[in-house]
């Protein structure tokens, strides 16, 4: 079994939208048989938190200097493109 991956959820304050996105993604991935370590942070903390993280899901723009794969999290707030975003996250977690 592969090592459990770590997903960093980021938003402006690190408390509101990233919490909602984290909860939604965690539930949806569990339904797909995937569990992961979840971290949350403010957008301004992403660069310092990205070490050791496998994937970032962010509702705000992320600095281009971050090399970890980033998936846009806005879909989980608006509902638009949510299934596609979940598929993208699943693909990263299964890598």
């Amino acid at each position: 079994m592969a090592k459990q991956k770590t997903v960093l959820f980021a938003c402006g304050t690190g408390v509101a939208t990233s919490t909602a996105v984290n909860a939604t993604v965690t539930e949806a991935m569990k339904a797909r048989g995937l569990i992961f370590n979840a971290l949350q942070c403010k957008a301004t903390e992403v660069a310092s938190m990205a070490d050791g993280v496998d994937l970032i899901v962010s509702t705000t723009p992320i600095s281009a200097s971050v090399t970890v794969p980033v998936i846009k999290g806005l879909a989980f707030l608006t509902g638009i493109g949510k299934d596609k975003a979940l598929d993208d996250i699943e693909a990263e977690l299964r890598k």
Partner: peptide, 22 residues
């Protein structure tokens, strides 16, 4: 307008808002 002080206790409230928005 959200007044959030403890994200771990307000997950449900945030999810209710998101489902309303959607």
């Amino acid at each position: 307008l959200l007044a959030i002080n403890d994200k771990d206790k307000q997950i449900e409230m945030l999810q209710e808002i998101m489902s309303t928005i959607q």
